[in-house]
Structure formats: C-alpha cells, structure tokens
Design a protein around this nucleic acid. Structure first.
Lengths: 243, 243
DNA sequence: TTATCCCATTTGTCCAACAATCCTATCATC
DNA sequence: GATGATAGGATTGTTGGACAAATGGGATAA
C-alpha cells in the first residue's frame, strides 16, 4: 500500500499513519467489528495532530476498511466490504505474487483483445495504428517505448467500449509500469524491441479483420513472451498457446 | 461517486466537496495539468473550512486524480493515471454500465472456473460441495441463498490459488450484491432457485473432473442466465454459449 | 548569460474550540 | 419488573487561526 507514487517523494504523515493503522488491522491486532481508539488517543499515541489522524482515517474509510460515525467512533468493517481493488506495493516485490498479477492481466488482456476484435470502431483502429507507428519511430527500448506499449493496450481496452474493462486494465498496467522499467533495463536489445512490435502488429491484424479467436491467441502469445522477457514465471497450465 | 454506502446516511462535507471538484474536473472546467485554486480560495468559494477542502483534495489525490505539492498547489493529473479501480454507486444505477460490469464479471468468472478446474485441491472441492449442500437446504430465495451463492463464487476463486483473481472477483461480487437483492425481490420463484442450484452443480461437476473447457462453458451459461434473471441485457456478441 | 539569494505563495501540520451525534445510565411510568 | 423518556458524557464533524516547509520566480550580482 504505502507510497502513492513511484516517485521518491517521501510520504506524508497521514499516509504513514494510515499504513500503520492498516497494518494493525490486517494483522488482526484490531479485529473486525472492533472500534478504534479515539482520534485524540491515536493522535497522542502516534505523536501527531488529530488532523493527521483524521485524514488517515478518512482514507481508510474511503476504501471501506472502516466506518466512522459521529459520536460512536470508527469500527473495522468485514474484509469483504473493501470498496476498492488495490494492488499493494508489497505484491509487486514478491515474485509469486507478481506472477499471479501477470496471470490476472493475461486473463483480462486476452479477453479484451477478443472483444475489441468484435466491437472496435474506426477511431479505435486509427489510434492503434498510430501507436504502432510511434513504436516504429523510436527503436530504442526507452521510456517512450514503454509509454507507447501502455498506450497500445489502453487503446485496445478502449475499443471494447466497456469502461470497467478499460479501467481495470489500465490500472494494472500502471501498477506494473514501475516493475517493467526496473527489469527492462537489462534487456536493451533492439531485437527484443522488434519482436515486441511484431507481436503488437499481429494482435492489431487479427483485431482489424474482426477475428476474435485469432486476436485472443495473438494476445496470449504476447503476454506469455512479455512475462518471459521480464523473467516472470507463469504457471504453464494456463498460458500454453493451444489450450 | 458520491455516497459511500447504500445507507441513507447523508454524506459529509468533504465527500460533497470532492464530488463537486471531481465534477468540475470531469467536465473539463478544470483541464488536465491545470492547477486548482488555492485551498483557502476553494474553502471560501464553497463556504466551508479549509480543513474540509483539504480532506476532499486528499481523497482525489488518493485516487490519482490530483497531485498536490507543497508550495505549488494541486494539479490535475492525466485521466489514465487513475490509481484505483473503483465501482461507483452511479455505475450500479445506470443500466448500460451495469451490463458492462456484468461483462467484466463474466470474463473473470469464466476464466476462474477454467483455472479452478486445473488447480483445485481437495479442500476446495469440499468447500464447494458444502456450499451446494447449504443451497439445497434452504430452498427459498432469501438472504441466506444469496450469501451461499456468493460463497460458491468465492470458493471457486480461492481454488484458482491466485490472490488477485480472488480479490477482484469478490470485490465485484460484493458491489453487485445490493443490486441483486433489490431486483431479486421480484423473482421469488422456487423454480428459479432450483435452476440456479443446477447451474452451480454443473459447474462443480466440470471442475471436479478437471475439465477446464467444460467448466468455462458451464460458467458462461450460468453468468448469462444470471444476467437474464436480473434483467441485465448483455451484448450478445460475447456471451453466446458457443463462440 | 548564468548563478545565487531572497521572498511571496501555497500546501503541510498543529492547536484549540464548538456543534452534532451517539451510547449509556438513570429515572419515571405503567 | 418491564418499558420508555431523558439527561449527560463521550466521540466524531467542522471551524478558525497559526506556524513550518517547500516551491517557484524575480531581483541581484558575477
């Protein structure tokens, strides 16, 4: 959870307090249904002002982790009441969790490719072609190339005409962006870049001719190789090209 | 966005201010990259204290809508930097958005069924069988039946052994829970309940014999009919049983 | 032109107070 | 004894003001 951005800007007091409170909740130190200490007490125990504690609690309340009511205090809500789907930073560090995240991303992207093949309009194709052109322009595996990759997937998701699919897809892509940058520094080979472009073009081809199964297969292959490039070990039972 | 819960508890000041600010951003009244008025100015223009404005801004910043820095002000971030995947209450009211959400749910649940068929262990099957037994016990379409339905899907997601798949699935299921309850009041027929149970049993059967394609098909059918029962019109290009 | 310093602006944090709401204990009534 | 009304303490919600820290820009000097 913790830091909001990949930036090294130090987190503010409310964020840190919220994280500490969340940790206490996750660890069961404060059980479900239980009421937190009063804001004043928390402020004193954390050594900050009540204002900071209030912002921290507001954050947790906003995510459906606790519910505070005037005069009663803040109670911890049941786990399945969480209001947002959020990917912790901790998950990005753990290798197995990263593989799981890639699996989720794969499931979504593959179906997105299939749906985009069925539903895309003219504007969508133009956007996708434009992104590929940009990828061609800069053959180096640099920041711009990563951004273009993200734009491709975003444009594809947009072509599904489903705001939720687009939302979850771009969210995961954004969370994975930092990871990609870190690991990708190793693979500065132009050959790999060219292969990535080829994979994208293959997907676009199948989408353009409205071949959903072909688009899905192309995307499955792309995800699989992207995972390979990043050294993420997917479970083989799922991502074999012919299932 | 607005109200957090279905409860009729009136929203607090910060929530309302955040909504008004968000509306101004969404409408383009405050463009991307632009800086908001200062907190003091906003406080004065909204007729609230600066503290309230601060909490509102904190909420928007937390979702990656704004980025505020000390001494500089709060700037509007590009739309695709949104940090959380969140299902607004407004989306649950809008019919088209509800259909989109069902589509996302379908995509996930279908693949979950397939993966569960491949990966489930003995404990998973026992749990799933237990849920079905509970469903059999109470033939009425009541609260317990809804809860058992949710448990079935949760147990299935758990069988994938992928925390993210489980997380996103249960999150969506929870957000859809209220909607199901509201609309389901109309369908108090025992026949429908029996058909739902039969669908679940069919899924479990395919999972148990480790037949991923069969499990996917069974789940696809289940999602499709569940949407029917709730009067949600899925787009037919996706959810035909034989694609 | 370029580098440095200074300063107004703006957010971050703190403090103290009052209002609104909730919970509980007490009391009155049946 | 049970039940309902009431009062009071406790806790969050909101306000207002103050200072600290960081940012950006402009003035100044080399």
């Amino acid at each position: 959870m913790s830091t909001r951005f990949v930036m090294d800007r130090p987190a503010g007091l409310p964020d840190r307090i919220a994280d500490r409170l969340l940790a206490q909740i996750e660890s069961g130190e404060i059980a479900e249904g239980e009421v937190l200490p009063t804001e004043s007490a928390l402020a004193q125990s954390f050594g900050v002002s009540r204002n900071v504690v209030r912002e921290a609690i507001a954050r947790l309340r906003y995510d459906g982790i606790l519910d505070s009511r005037q005069g009663r205090g803040a109670t911890v809500l049941p786990r399945d009441a969480r209001l947002t789907f959020r990917i912790d930073d901790s998950g990005l560090a753990d290798e197995a969790a990263l593989a799981d995240l890639f699996e989720l991303r794969g499931v979504l992207e593959i179906e997105i490719a299939g749906i985009a093949a069925l539903r895309h309009g003219e504007g969508d194709l133009a956007e996708l072609r434009g992104v590929l052109a940009d990828l061609d322009a800069g053959p180096a595996f640099d920041e711009a190339s990563l951004e273009a990759d993200a734009r491709f997937h975003r444009a594809l998701a947009a072509a599904t005409d489903n705001a939720y699919l687009k939302g979850i897809s771009t969210y995961i892509a954004f969370r994975l962006k930092g990871t990609s940058r870190d690991t990708a520094a190793i693979y500065r080979s132009d050959d790999l870049v060219r292969r990535t472009i080829a994979e994208h073009r293959h997907i676009l081809d199948r989408v353009a001719v409205r071949d959903p199964d072909g688009a899905r297969d192309a995307m499955r292959q792309h995800i699989r190789q992207a995972a390979d490039r990043l050294g993420v070990a997917l479970r083989e039972d799922r991502f074999s090209v012919s299932r």
